[in-house]
Design a protein around this nucleic acid. Structure first.
Lengths: 160, 160
DNA sequence: CCTTCATATTTGCAAATGCATTTAATTCTG
DNA sequence: CAGAATTAAATGCATTTGCAAATATGAAGG
């Protein structure tokens, strides 16, 4: 066993000492739990599920992704995404075409109807976002996003 | 309709303009998606599910909560928590006692075995946490947590 | 004090989820 | 270049989830 690793492991602070409200992962779960739940309710009234909504949101920004890439971006299990795409395709909001460069893969394209659908739900998302950061100055928001980007870079498996 | 609300709604920036990687809720979902998935795998090998693990984590810090409070703290649907507690109680990790002051309610207490169980899984959580914030200086972490607390205060429904 | 409304928890049930497997295609290796 | 290992996506299936209803208790109003 490595000598250097030991002190690090022994130095782990206890959760109770830090307190839940100073533990970033806890706070982030609390926040996203509420954010996603509230968004899910809004989406339900528009006939969309969370996986469908996330797929549309990502595709509205980066179109023509492979399904496995979309799964990473949208933070949805690949099998769940596959079924969400069945629905979106049936509703004419996206198209699945075989990837010309790799015939195992499928590229997903958002349709005009899909863009229109996202346009109708975006104000709801934007409203949630505005509420989250209400009263937080621009500089603080920017610093926050910068840290989020560093954290994502630390833990992501894929390089996107 | 209120005059003041209109300009705000029209001013909503588009997601595409901001880009996914500058959109805080997106980044947080990406981060927590990976964090929770990785933790879930680790917990599975210890025979615990995410709801069980979260309940134990919260109780290790704040014991004797009512179930509905625990559901909020642990970010678990109450019906799901109810079933997770069935499991934890059967394994002797927590106890459910009728609340003396309100016999509709149940207070949940962590047992010694429960604390011990959490002690064994905490190093795993701490390792994930350390990895997330590797290379991020103390001051930046503190600012980040401060912003998280403000955001939570903005969106939470309960005052805890 | 009784009726009505609200709150805490559990449970039934249908739907959603995710793991593991399958199918199909690509890449690697000897 | 044949065979083995890898990757992309879809699907079968058991588990999990969460909504809604049921149960039980407490609080409020006339």
């Amino acid at each position: 066993m490595n000598d250097l690793a030991k002190p690090l492991l022994e130095d782990v602070p206890r959760l109770g000492e830090m307190g839940l409200h100073n533990y970033a992962p806890y706070l982030m779960n609390r926040i996203m739990g509420r954010y996603n739940a509230s968004l899910r309710d809004d989406m339900a009234s528009l006939g969309l599920t969370t996986p469908k909504m996330r797929a549309l949101a990502v595709l509205s920004v980066i179109d023509g992704l492979q399904i496995r890439e979309l799964a990473v971006y949208a933070v949805v299990e690949q099998s769940t995404l596959s079924r969400a795409l069945d629905g979106l395709e049936a509703e004419g909001l996206v198209r699945r075409d075989s990837d010309p460069g790799d015939s195992r893969a499928t590229r997903v394209t958002i349709s005009e109807a899909g863009r229109a659908a996202f346009e109708t739900l975006w104000p709801t998302m934007a409203r949630s976002y505005a509420r989250m950061f209400a009263g937080i100055p621009t500089a603080e928001r920017a610093a926050f996003v910068a840290t989020l980007q560093r954290v994502l870079a630390n833990i992501r498996k894929h390089d996107f």
